[in-house]
Design a protein around this nucleic acid. Structure first.
Lengths: 220, 220
DNA sequence: ACCTGAACACCGTTCAAGT
DNA sequence: ACCTGAACACCGTTCAAGT
């Protein structure tokens, strides 16, 4: 007991604060420039002291991803499946857009953590309760996730902002050979003429998938 | 003319052979362990000599990706759009599976090269000729690509081989808490009981999308 | 128990020097 | 024109030494 009352030296470093700082740095300054040395430095410590709280960079990364996944709005089992899937997909995209470095790492993560387990369980559960078989629920979840990951990763790396689209098309038009790439040329012309905005829609592909699933579950 | 007949010293290094060797090493030994030093070494040269033929590792990477994209079976403009989209999607997946390192880099590539331009032009062209507007063609291509990228990247990183699925489910079942993850628990039970194989299907999501597009273009 | 300096085995790239 | 050794400015991580 006396030991508990003894004023302890406040620990500067914790796994928690290390992960928080790592997330902050990755979000604000980019994941590529995040090194153990730099992370430690911004916490007023040396790189080596981090190893007292975290096994290594790989584990740190896993902890960061757990936090990110926890931000996703998972379905509530028992509620209307279609709306739940739609909300989850949009929330997942927003989360991945907030942490631009996360998608690549998350999709290539081999061992899944608790946050991911919870999300998968809720998603499969919501679909099963709505009448999907387990196999169908698995396929449905996989199809939705594929779209979210694939769309968002393309979006994250697209070099032109939506507002700049028309200007970019005008700028690059001369470089798109009309003989080599006739359709891309015409597409650029149509964007310049305002016939369409050139912006692809996340919802377009998502609704295509949800529509297909809907017709399927009705048959069940 | 005499200069042309003069026996020249055979150049050991060319951008072409460097890229070929890099592809070979990345495919066989993994992209993570591919370094300029190692690549040069396997060509009987030093790292620095590579810089006489390739601007740097970034350019080398772009050249590698161009080769990969060239392997994709692009649509033939004028042919049946649905079958062309299906073939392209499957070919794209197979190509990405052949070069396990490529997806992540390809999807995060900012400046697009000639091979990608050709593929996009053919894809959009095929759809436009079939009656899609340019906007619709763009959305359709984006939805298909999202599925291919998203599905294949999940597939590439999935830790269990299809054949081992049943065994893996049996092995991990005790670790999936029935109270915390009731639906994942039941899913594992069903896999063990052979009620479904646990394998997600690339075609499932793809056909969902193609089906949706089909109904759409009929309305046009 | 926690922190750290020095060291190890790597990177990509620059630069000046070779032929 | 092509190649290269040495060097620079970085990595993640180990290990023994501090307190």
């Amino acid at each position: 007991m006396s030991q508990a009352e003894k004023p302890r030296k406040r620990r500067l470093l914790t796994a928690e604060v290390i992960v928080s700082k790592a997330l902050e740095l990755a979000d604000e300054e980019g994941f590529d420039t995040l090194s153990m040395r730099k992370l430690a430095g911004s916490l007023g410590a040396t790189a080596m002291s981090l190893y007292n709280h975290v096994a290594g960079k790989d584990e740190l990364l896993d902890l960061m991803l757990e936090r990110v996944v926890a931000e996703i709005e998972s379905p509530v089992v028992g509620c209307h499946w279609e709306e739940m899937m739609r909300r989850r997909a949009h929330s997942m995209r927003q989360t991945l857009l907030r942490h631009r470095w996360a998608s690549t790492l998350l999709i290539s993560k081999i061992a899944i953590g608790e946050a991911i387990m919870r999300d998968i369980d809720a998603t499969v559960g919501c679909l099963v309760r709505a009448g999907f078989t387990y196999a169908q629920a698995d396929w449905a979840r996989n199809a939705i996730d594929s779209h979210v990951y694939g769309y968002t990763m393309q979006e994250l790396n697209f070099p032109v902002e939506p507002e700049e689209f028309k200007a970019a098309a005008a700028q690059y038009l001369p470089m798109i050979s009309k003989t080599d790439y006739p359709f891309m040329h015409e597409a650029a012309v149509q964007i310049i003429e305002g016939k369409y905005d050139g912006i692809t829609q996340f919802s377009f592909g998502l609704e295509l998938i949800l529509d297909g699933l809907k017709r399927w579950v009705v048959d069940v």
